[in-house]
């Protein structure tokens, strides 16, 4: 559906480097793939209402979405849009490297509230199971059948250097040929998803400057 960004400015020797072949952003009420805006909704200020409209708009038809915590909702929607709107084939060995600032804080708060009510303190298994940030990796892996390297990292700020270092290490050490990497942050109504796919082929050079620009 989407045209791939043409790496017209690439030098020939870059072709065997690890480059960004596709990317996706969900922030400030808008969804874009490879820099092209695909959906805007600035009416829904509430994150859960907003992400539900995105889910419906893109016909994701994955009912498990409703059961997920906010971090998984943002991650599965961003990954689905990225993978399904770029015509890229699904590589079952594609590694996942995600990061954020707040871990899965919203569902943590919800679980904490439930267990703080003294008289009626039944923890909910359906909440507790989402109280780990790497569950988002598990959900993406299940949906796209990715039996691959999966890691979730936490940083106070978006850390392009680390994402580049670790993504490169996975490809250069032969752990994976392709990596879906990025930042998926949600804390109440503040959210920002920036996912990108890296492999050894034509694309945007994987540099800190480019990542900061694209985020």
């Amino acid at each position: 559906m989407e045209e791939v960004i043409q790496p017209f400015y690439l030098e020939k020797e870059n072709r065997m480097k690890n480059n960004i072949i596709h990317y996706c952003n969900i922030k400030d009420g808008s969804v874009s793939v490879n820099g092209k805006s695909l959906y805007v909704n600035t009416v829904e200020k509430d994150f859960l209402s907003f992400i539900k409209t995105v889910y419906k708009q893109f016909d994701l038809a994955y009912p498990k979405f409703y059961k997920m915590d906010p971090l998984c909702k943002l991650s599965i929607v961003a990954a689905s849009i990225l993978l399904e709107n770029t015509g890229s084939e699904i590589d079952p060995n594609m590694a996942l490297v995600l990061s954020n600032k707040s871990s899965c804080i919203d569902i943590d708060r919800k679980h904490q509230e439930t267990i703080s009510q003294e008289a009626d303190s039944y923890a909910s298994p359906a909440n507790f199971v989402y109280t780990l940030p790497n569950i988002a990796l598990g959900e993406i892996s299940i949906k796209y059948k990715l039996q691959s390297e999966n890691s979730f990292f936490i940083f106070e700020y978006f850390n392009p250097k680390f994402l580049i270092d670790y993504t490169n290490s996975l490809i250069d050490l032969g752990k994976s040929n392709r990596v879906l990497s990025g930042w998926v942050e949600v804390n109440e109504n503040n959210y920002n998803a920036f996912l990108f796919i890296v492999e050894k082929s034509d694309g945007i050079e994987l540099t800190q400057k480019n990542l900061i620009k694209l985020k």
């Binding site: 780990l132 940030p133 979730f152 936490i154 940083f155 250069d172 050490l173």
Partner: peptide, 28 residues
């Protein structure tokens, strides 16, 4: 250096060793 938190459920402790190995082997 900037601290790296690895939060990958019950495999985190073993995976941290693996992450360190990779980042050293790739020269970072």
């Amino acid at each position: 250096t900037e601290p790296i938190v690895l939060s990958n459920a019950c495999v985190s402790g073993v995976m941290a060793i693996s992450v360190a190995k990779r980042l050293i082997q790739s020269g970072s």
